[in-house]
């Protein structure tokens, strides 16, 4: 995704799916607009959406790794702080 010159089509499709999935999940509002099943007192509406925040982060992290691995190796990033 980050560099079309060096990313294989298969990787690009996977990255696209990972990045689109959160939109599909969150915009299908009626699919999660219910109270049951509850989890630790939280109605489904709330724990489902909170859970997907974590999954969204994981998906983006995987997309980042995939798009990096597909690039030519470069020296490890130097952090300046």
């Amino acid at each position: 995704m980050s560099d079309p010159r060096s990313t294989s089509p298969a990787v690009r499709v996977v990255v696209a799916v990972l990045l689109i999935a959160p939109f599909v999940v969150y915009l299908a509002v009626p699919s999660y607009a219910r109270v049951e099943p509850r989890l630790a007192g939280f109605p489904f509406f709330y724990w489902w959406q909170l859970l997907w925040v974590i999954l969204t982060a994981v998906f983006i992290g995987v997309a980042y790794r995939l798009s990096r691995r597909a690039r030519p190796a470069r020296p490890a990033d130097e952090e300046d702080d």
Binding site: L27, F45, W52, V53, T56, A57, I60, Y64
Partner: peptide, 19 residues
């Protein structure tokens, strides 16, 4: 619940940031 839309907003904003 109507006020909770800020949560999906704060999640789906990040794929856009990434792109």
């Amino acid at each position: 619940a109507m006020g909770f839309w800020a949560l999906p907003y704060a999640a789906i904003a990040y794929p856009i940031v990434f792109l």
